[in-house]
């Protein structure tokens, strides 16, 4: 019973923070709201017994990715009109209607596919230790794990190339 109460509390906080991410005028408020969403997400992961992923979520997402966002936003010094307003007046209405329709479709699909779902509390076997994840990562999922390093290398080189281009292009452009 207490778990259900905690779930509804965290879910309400998460949805409110997500609305703030999408709706707030200043990007910095959006980033800080996204931080709240990440925190709630980590709580959900712990409730679902995914401890390693919860730690990764806080360290990598909330710690690294969002700080990167904050750095960029502070670096760019956005003027108020740079926070663009929609061109067409009807655009938010269309977007919100489309998104709500998508939510209804997803909800229906989930309800249909889960007629025989197993209740979460029935599983008592602890299977998601760090050791088990490391074992799966090094045996069954070894190839994607190695390819990830290639992806990170590509992103690294891409970011450096973009930054260097900026330095050499500045005299060409203006």
């Amino acid at each position: 019973m207490g778990e259900l109460l905690l779930f509804y509390l965290i879910a309400a906080l998460m949805v409110a923070a997500a609305l703030s991410v999408v709706g707030s005028r200043l990007p910095i408020y959006s980033v800080l709201s996204l931080l709240v969403v990440m925190g709630c997400q980590a709580v959900f992961f712990v409730m679902l017994h995914a401890y390693f992923v919860a730690a990764i979520q806080l360290l990598l997402y909330a710690g690294a990715v969002l700080v990167l966002f904050l750095f960029v936003i502070m670096l760019l010094q956005l003027s108020p009109e740079a926070v663009a307003y929609p061109r067409l007046l009807s655009r938010p209405a269309i977007g919100i209607t489309a998104a709500f329709g998508l939510f209804l479709i997803l909800r229906t699909v989930f309800f249909r596919s889960l007629a025989q779902e197993p209740p979460l509390a029935d599983l008592s076997r602890p299977h998601s230790t760090v050791e088990a994840i490391a074992h799966a990562l090094m045996t069954k999922y070894l190839l994607p794990f190695e390819l990830t390093s290639l992806l990170i290398l590509a992103a690294l080189i891409g970011a450096v190339t973009l930054a260097k281009q900026q330095a050499s292009d500045s005299r060409l452009k203006r």
């Binding site: 779930f7 999408v22 969403v37 939510f103 209740p119």
Partner: peptide
């Protein structure tokens, strides 16, 4: 607490993300 609870929250978050992409420029 069942799987459906989490999936509904997930669907709501996804829909809000889509709305953000469609609305914000």
């Amino acid at each position: 607490l069942t799987l459906t609870h989490y999936l509904i929250v997930s669907a709501a978050l996804f829909a809000m993300g889509i709305a953000g992409i469609l609305i914000r420029r």
